[in-house]
Design a protein around this nucleic acid. Structure first.
Lengths: 354, 354
DNA sequence: CACGGTTGTGAAATCGCTTTCAAGAGCCCC
DNA sequence: GGGGCTCTTGAAAGCGATTTCACAACCGTG
């Protein structure tokens, strides 16, 4: 096979540019024009089966792989979608990425990922960079402000927001109904008989947090009295913030996310507060560390991977069809497990756990 | 400013292709040739400051952003590096990605991410795809076999292996010294007085696992007797696998990773086995869930983000300088915490925990 | 047998940018 | 004042694909 293609065996001294096999080389080897090679490879037009065979074997022979940049330029699209996330070490986002990645692959696209490191001012430039190298962009939980989002989405470049709805603007977005979910949580607590509840709040700039808080208006109807305690987003934050709460009268705590709640839980265990006997604890996200953490946390399941999938599909529609501006919501589920129970009627004691 | 640029105000009806501002448009607006615009934007040659100003304002005016594909094509490089990971939902890899992303950004490159879903046969095609759209490729814990790796790295395209060394081949790679780390673990156990130890083994195809196992030869010198128990990679695997171990005489268990160990730990708690009193448990990776899990696991810290950083830098060197084939190792650290202790001399009892 | 209609193929234009090359302007120095 | 420099700028040639367009060759039909 190799002997009738002497070019292959001659390996020229590694030049500055790596030796690249182009579509013209393939054409020459197969005795056809580059146009025909393109047609065979993309199946865009009928070609004589005999020619096609020659082309295919030349491709294999030479190890030809089309240059993605050239294709992108000629086709006017890159075959790539971009995703911006605030923080890769937050387990939330890789799960979303996983969903996006799966969708991208089924549509034959590659996935570019950028991380803003939770810095709203960095986001702008990163999105610009994504826009000039991707057919569409997915913005996950963008921290930037309303006006910047409005500005970025007004360019005619497909953009989908994940996990953030900008009120007043109809931007294609996919998110979860946090208000509804938190209302479910409140309903659950009310039903168990809780009255005084603390909420360990998330980052101030977070839309997801303000949505959760919004639900508390409705919660008043359930007869709940909810104290919002500034907290943060990590388990450390929960660990620190819970101290003050314990001195109050609350019988249930819900956290902005599971990490916070688990951090708080760890602290409470240290202090000898029993869960759920002394205190009901509810998380948010369901980051499924149950088996690992030994605590079956009652929490709200955010379908992270599905969020990525839905976002990816919405973006795909936007890129091909062109119209899809209706915000959508992924469904959530309250997972009642071992950390929520009816409040005790007798006052709480600080007993050591064992 | 706009009045002397009438072209801008004329907004043609949105065509099929989005209206793109090209370098020629900018040139026209600034009254210079596209070549000059390019020179201004890239700083590749001296241009008259007055011209440069005109160009810069035209760029701002028109909202020009260079087309990445065209740049890539003209320059012969994409400004992109690719990373292949087996599984995004494994907390290990996002951390590596974080390191890679940071390096990429400092070198002005974008990061493409692909996930193989732990499927060795999918990896091949994904890497091919990465190679034709990235300047360099980072293979994280590739599951494919030796020969395939050899084949892929023999093309003259920069590739760096992360977390896998292929014996007999000198491929640029960055990994951690698993043998050394596991030897440390064994030393720790021996020092505490343990004799019989079980190792919950990782996936069969995993190089990282076989490295860990290799350390056990050395461990014999410490007087340790180590049983290798087939297990897996998730906490569920650990949870399932630990049953048999408990029926044996071992006084310490170390797992292929933290997840396994924590899964096993959860099961042991359910069965009333106390840690570390009845059993010493040691993990691997230090996925820092301590606060969350309420267990301060003794474990080996794998510097995941640094691994990504070092890998990225090695790749960068490979792409620019061209020579860097020496495998390197990142340092690891044994973190002795609350789950390891001297074995009890009296036989273990299966008491309920509380 | 001539003729319109289909079909498959190649030449060439195109995508948007970089970069070489050549030309013109301005400068210094003899 | 003219020859030789340097220095800045524009024209044009790539980069490697796709895609339009035109042209043969071939088909069946009247």
């Amino acid at each position: 096979m190799t002997q009738d293609l002497p070019e292959v065996t001659v390996r020229p001294p590694r030049a500055q540019r790596p030796v690249r096999v182009t579509i013209t080389d393939v054409g020459a080897a197969a005795g056809v024009s580059p146009a025909t090679v393109s047609r065979v490879l993309n199946g865009t037009a009928k070609v004589d089966p005999a020619l096609a065979d020659r082309v295919n074997s030349a491709v294999r022979e030479l190890g030809y792989r089309p240059n993605a940049a050239a294709q992108g330029l000629a086709r006017g699209e890159w075959g790539t979608i971009g995703v911006l996330v605030p923080d890769l070490s937050n387990p939330y986002f890789p799960d979303v990425l996983k969903g996006v990645s799966a969708v991208a692959r089924t549509h034959g696209r590659r996935m570019m990922v950028m991380e803003s490191d939770e810095d709203p001012s960095a986001e702008r430039e990163l999105v610009e960079d994504l826009m000039r190298s991707c057919d569409g962009v997915l913005l996950c939980s963008p921290r930037m402000d309303r006006t910047e989002i409005a500005e970025l989405t007004s360019r005619d470049h497909p953009v989908v927001l994940v996990n953030r709805v900008v009120p007043g603007l109809t931007i294609p977005s996919i998110s979860v109904d946090f208000v509804g979910a938190m209302t479910m949580v409140c309903g659950h607590l009310a039903q168990l008989g809780h009255r005084k509840v603390a909420y360990l709040s998330g980052p101030a700039a977070s839309w997801a947090n303000s949505e959760r808080v919004r639900a508390f208006d409705t919660a008043k109807a359930f007869g709940l009295e909810i104290t919002v305690v500034p907290c943060g987003s990590t388990s450390e934050h929960g660990y620190e913030a819970i101290g003050d709460v314990l001195r109050s009268e609350v019988t249930a705590v819900c956290g902005y996310n599971d990490l916070i709640t688990l951090g708080a839980l760890a602290r409470m265990r240290e202090l000898g507060v029993r869960v759920p006997r002394d205190m009901t604890m509810i998380g948010f996200d369901d980051i499924s560390l149950d088996r690992v953490t030994h605590t079956n946390l009652t929490t709200v399941a955010v379908p992270r991977e599905e969020l990525g999938r839905l976002g990816g599909e919405m973006l795909e529609r936007l890129m091909t069809v062109g119209q899809d501006s209706e915000p959508r919501y992924a469904r959530m589920e309250l997972r009642v497990r071992d950390t929520s129970a009816a409040p005790r009627t007798t006052p709480r004691l600080n007993l050591p756990e064992q």
